[in-house]
Design a protein around this nucleic acid. Structure first.
Lengths: 261, 261
DNA sequence: ATGCAACCTTGATTTAGATCAAGTCCGTGT
DNA sequence: ACACGGACTTGATCTAAATCAAGGTTGCAT
């Protein structure tokens, strides 16, 4: 089983310290470059002003705690840059990362009074924070926004089901192949569709520990499997947490459970 | 890896054949006994009439296919009796059951044009079927219903994250203990809270194959683990797919990852 | 009441991935 | 330039759960 070292755990207040003023700039959401890949695409110009008014923008360094398991669920977040990991832990430190939220994804929804999961930045992260009462006002005032959120949560649920299939029934090899393809898709989504066929890059800002805790493996198995893919020329490492995928088709076959290599 | 034999796979039409007329009885939802444990609790009397008008009630025998992976997502369902299993499969037949939907639970939400999962009855199931356009009308006409659905999907997502922790990081023993406690809670929820402390029963209508495919184990490991619990007097088998839990506290300890037995 | 088929249990053996154990690589600060 | 620490890789060994292999139980249909 894998555990992570105790996180730096900056409190909410630390995030607030980094917060932009945000009171005057009704334009913030209007000029947001990833708006159309997020919930906010459901808003007209007036709605965007309301969003800007209801939220504060935070800029957080790697390893910052955003949400702590069991703490009161006070806020909802929209990631506008970087990557966040969401996780659940067992008392002895075993940890399962339940997802990575890249730019355009939301996090922090809860019907309970407390969060049932933790969230921490992987790299430098920008996000918009909505306090719960403000979010609820938005949902009531903008039915298209609420409908969009319902669709987004529904998609997250389908993703979670796919991940359950991976965790319960895929081999280490299949898990890693699936992960790399997912990270390629994440990269294409956030970078826009510029030259995606030419590049086939996957962004992997997280450590081996995080990957292992996401796939239900150990870091050694993740490392060995990636090495094996590299030896087979299915992938090639590049600079800076990037992996180039040399054979998408083969990796797709592996990821979906076909025999061949 | 585990696979299931090809299911009987009655088509939608089979379900329709069993359908009640439903056109006249505006009272159906009003008199529904599990209404308050479901989405429908968000509706006033007028809304309940609208629900009855928008849905058809189906009665399906064990092993009936409700939703087929990859088929057009035409309907949404509310389970009013019995237990449904939801699953995803790999091409070679490996299967992961992503959840069991007992009375009061919904299934069939999808933003995609097709279902990304399959659903099949475990025992005798009663459910209400809403076609997509009808569901969308209801969501638009009854904001409290939509809000309730959002909350329900959010809860399902939290459940899915809990299951990812189980699949990725729990031992066989911990998985089975968690499952038994979950089934006890499911039983208490559907049976009302009559004498729950006295009884401590879990309803387990599904086969070992289903349990194994839900927990990411083999049937042999599930069987051995349940036998071991019985030998340790943590549980006792009773008649008819019921298991009596003799030591909830110990099982809770095991389920949450503490060492002892 | 008997026979079949599906389901479940138990035992023996194997194996994928975990654990244990060194290293290597790389970026940062001095 | 160098050494310190964190992240990663690679190899050797171990083990929890899978696989293989019989039986046993149960319930239903004749």
């Amino acid at each position: 089983m894998t555990s992570s070292s105790p996180p730096p755990a900056l409190a909410h207040s630390a995030g607030v310290a980094h917060a932009h003023k945000g009171d005057g700039d009704v334009l913030r959401c209007l000029v947001c470059d990833i708006r159309n890949r997020s919930l906010c695409s459901s808003m007209d110009e007036e709605g965007l002003a309301a969003l800007a008014h209801s939220s504060r923008q935070l800029q957080l360094p790697p390893g910052t705690t955003i949400v702590e398991e069991g703490e009161p669920a006070l806020a909802f977040f929209n990631v506008t840059g970087g990557t966040v990991k969401l996780f659940k832990s067992l008392p002895d430190g075993r940890r399962q990362i339940t997802g990575f939220a890249d730019a355009g994804q939301f996090l922090g929804l809860s019907t309970a009074q407390t969060y049932s999961f933790g969230a921490e930045t992987v790299d430098n992260v920008r996000l918009c924070r909505f306090l719960r009462p403000q979010l609820e006002t938005l949902l009531s005032d903008y039915p298209t926004f609420e409908r969009r959120l319902l669709a987004a949560v529904t998609d997250k649920l389908a993703e979670a089901q796919e991940q359950m299939l991976l965790l319960g029934r895929k081999t280490a090899r299949e898990k890693v192949a699936t992960f790399l393809l997912d990270r390629m898709r994440a990269y294409h989504l956030t970078m826009g569709h510029t030259r995606q066929e030419v590049e086939n890059l996957a962004s992997v800002p997280m450590t081996r520990v995080d990957i292992a805790d996401y796939l239900g493996l150990t870091i050694e198995t993740v490392s060995r499997t990636i090495s094996a893919f590299r030896r087979s020329h299915l992938i090639a490492s590049t600079e800076n947490h990037r992996i180039r995928i040399l054979s998408v088709a083969t990796l797709l076959n592996i990821a979906s459970g076909q025999k061949p290599d």
